[in-house]
Amino acid sequence: MRSDPYAPARPAIRPRPVGVITAARPRALPAGRVVAAAGLVVLVLYALLVPVLVPVDLDRVDYATGPTPPSLAHPFGTDLAGRDLLVRGAHGLRVSLVAALAGATGAVVLGCLVGAACALVGGRLDRWGMRVVDGVNAVPHLLLGIVVAAALRGSLLTIVLVVAATHWTQTARLVRAELLALGTRDFYRAAVSLGLTRRQVLRHHAAPRLAAQLAVALGLLVPHAVWHESTLTFLGLGLPPHQPSLGALLDLGQQALLSGAWWTLAAPAGLLVAVTLCLAGCLAGRTEDHHG
């Protein structure tokens, strides 16, 4: 029924309907990936170096200067308390990235454990495990986060717990599916007839494959975790104000909007969007490569 799906990979000489030969797809080109990776490096360096190079006392406030728009002295401007947003932004990015990385790692580790347990033990554990996965997926993650944060109050640990507790499900599915496919997928079956032992299949095929997929999963989770942290903090349920995460800066920025200080919102918002886009851009297209 299909037309030849294995047509030779020659230049496109097979006729296609006019106008739909190469539709623009929303995925980054290799050049875009390079730009995204470069942007990510710049952002991480900014978060790491600026707080070191510009040592300021974060708690020192100076209401006399008040909010000043971006200038040469303060490229991102200053906030209502006269604090430099370039430095505050770097601190905020640092806190947000740490929280996101820890949360995403926790989610991937938890997902691996659950997925592997479901696949390897099977039976009732597998059925119930998958039911729990469905249940967690059915509840809006943010709602779960709000409930947990409401009870435990904001701290870095709470944010990490919230992210890990709500995002382990995709990884669990992934690991379970890959392990179960050991028996059915054609290339594992080929490995059987080629005389590889289970251990060799795991070592040469399944483990590297799974590792690559987990790396992508982790990479995709980090921007999502940044989003979660900033959202919860923005709502007042996340990190306490003395830890200036991006979400806290955004919250202050929104309050400052009414006084016309748009840059207090623009600086952290720009950082948040930039870090999300760079992370996503680095991984664009990776998912397809590895699900082969």
């Binding site: 959202t231 909007l257 918002a269 996503a280």
Partner: peptide
């Protein structure tokens, strides 16, 4: 798609 909805709303 990278902009959280609270930022869309605030903007």
């Amino acid at each position: 798609s990278a902009v959280p909805s609270f930022l869309v709303a605030t903007t």
